[in-house]
Design a protein around this nucleic acid. Structure first.
Lengths: 341, 341
DNA sequence: CTGAAAGCGCTAACAT
DNA sequence: ATGTTAGCGCTTTCAG
């Protein structure tokens, strides 16, 4: 038997002994179970207090078959979007007495499956956010992860709740906003190729092209980070576009910074939009026009869905689409003079 | 006995049965234990694979007396500093096969003790970051949290490793930097009053005053958020100071934004410094001069200390001070004209 | 209403 | 080298 140090932790047995009752009674009292003699209850509580007894969580988990813990697997803890989600999940779950175990796959999507499985095995359920995992792998993984809720991925499996952001609509709104301002030459700074969110944006833009044949829209590969946006500045300028749709706020901020370094005025010379509305977006100079995603709400919702699956809480719809909300801020403005293409 | 659904999970017994061996053998094989007949080992592995068997973590934990999980309690998951720490801890711990359980106290420092205790009970150890918790409460808590490592708090207890950032020195470096640039009227935008980090900065500035009697340094209460910095813009301008030491990067960014709105040029009219060097600091306009704190390293170190306490890994020094590194960037510049005080 | 005892899934003595 | 068995700390039937 493993016994790390000399000092034994106080267990239910100690309390029972001290209170002169059986283990069962202590257990009943600790769990606020019905039908315990007030006298005994008091003795037990006293003993527990004196010994500073706290039930061992692992023992409880084994007996109860539940850990009161859920796992959340995210691709990158450095990304504000996933941080926001994590925070939303964590706070909501905490409200219901659940804790959250993190599994950060560090962008190594090959590890995601294993990680998710491990997380699931330690927990009662899982929130899975794996934008780069391929479709087949995802489908194969789902059964073993149940109960789980999926973020920004859809699945044929109707058992699995999934919360998705309508990136396609959001990017169209952003593009339309630029068109309204008179821009006719746009460039999209694309995110990671295999990311589901990027593909959704691309589809949205395809639709936009159909609706706005007069607009010239080009795509530039970039990425999802500051750096990606920063180094894109030259390429963006080379296109001659007056409006830029950055993959997300990070990319937009990087671009803003790169543009600023080159003395390009935003929005005077070029308008820039982001995506997500991370907290920082409000405080860039100029403040960033973006499509706000209620990422904390998504996290919270994710927990609610999972809670339902776990048998607590009340039933709710299992599939939800979150609509981004256009935030008009200082980084976009009227085009200076119509560009002659 | 709790049995949620009808479908039994496959346990070690099933594998043993299928392989026609005892539980013990299966356990030995699964744990790569010495002395198992290759033949049996193969049979066990085959059976495990066929049944898609994965050891139950809770059962293991109970038997082993360890969970391979550590808790991390942070005051606010929305704060980039704590996010960075979390990330550092999480990645480092993952390297050693440990998982991280989050306890976000949501700034409610009264909850921190309970939260920390709960986290500890589910885990093998805890990383505690509770800048606002009062001294007495902290000391009282320590014994029950062992093994733990403390972040940005010191304690008399030499058993407890603690990692602290030298905020006092950092803020002095920042102030000295401004002085070098010719600034003689400075203002410090103070953080949360009870925060240990704020007090350290205040002490550093006291020392700075002694070293630089020629400099006029005032303090303005602010806070630790964007908003705090943003609303401070007017008060800052009212002081007539030409150099501002913001409590942290968030406050500095808020201030930058507030200043920009009022047409105040940074660093032309006023120089602004932050603290922490969060990833965004490099991408503000202008880029933020700040004192860089290697927050990811701190998280990583925290894990290493904890690992040592847990009995793995090699011995390391138990108390470490991290020196912030001055980052000179665009938000600070030469004073326009010497101010006549 | 209470206590004895079985069992959650696994590991580690202890025999064999 | 393998099987038997006794826990790990707790909950919950099942008798009384």
């Amino acid at each position: 038997m493993a016994r790390k140090t000399a000092n034994r932790r106080v267990g239910i047995t100690d309390v029972a002994q001290r209170a002169g009752v059986s283990l069962a009674s202590v257990s009943r009292v600790m769990n606020g179970n019905f039908s315990v003699d007030p006298d005994i209850a008091a003795r037990v509580r006293a003993a527990a207090a004196e010994l500073n007894y706290h039930p061992n969580a692992v023992g409880r988990s084994l007996a109860l078959g539940k850990t009161d813990t859920i796992g959340i697997v995210v691709p990158d803890l450095a990304n504000p979007t996933f941080q926001g989600m994590l925070r939303g999940v964590s706070r909501a779950a905490a409200q219901d007495g659940y804790r959250v175990l993190i599994a950060d796959s560090s962008e190594v999507s090959s590890e995601e499956s294993i990680l998710a499985g491990e997380a699931r095995r330690r927990c009662d359920g899982v929130v899975l956010c794996a934008p780069r995992m391929n479709e087949a792998e995802l489908e194969a993984l789902l059964p073993s992860l149940q109960p789980l809720v999926l973020i920004n991925r859809s699945t044929a499996d109707t058992q699995t709740p999934s919360l998705v952001v309508d990136y396609g609509q959001g990017i169209q709104d952003l593009a339309a906003h630029l068109v309204e301002l008179g821009h006719t030459r746009l460039v999209f700074l694309a995110g990671p190729e295999r990311s589901a969110g990027n593909q959704a944006r691309l589809q949205g833009l395809e639709k936009f092209r159909v609706d706005h044949p007069e607009v010239e829209l080009t795509t530039l590969p970039a990425g999802s980070s500051f750096e990606a946006g920063h180094v894109s500045a030259v390429a963006v300028l080379a296109t001659g576009a007056t409006g830029v749709l950055a993959f997300n706020d990070l990319v937009a901020m990087g671009l803003l910074s790169g543009l600023h370094e080159r003395g390009v005025d935003v929005p005077g010379d070029i308008s820039v939009t982001g995506f997500d509305d991370i907290p920082f977006a409000n405080y860039t100079t100029p403040p960033l026009t973006t499509a706000a995603v209620a990422i904390n709400d998504i996290g919270e919702q994710a927990w609610h869905e999972l809670r339902q699956l776990l048998g607590d809480g009340d039933p709710e719809p299992a599939h939800t689409t979150f609509q981004p909300e256009l935030k008009r801020r200082g980084s976009t403005g009227r085009v200076k003079k119509p560009t002659l293409s």
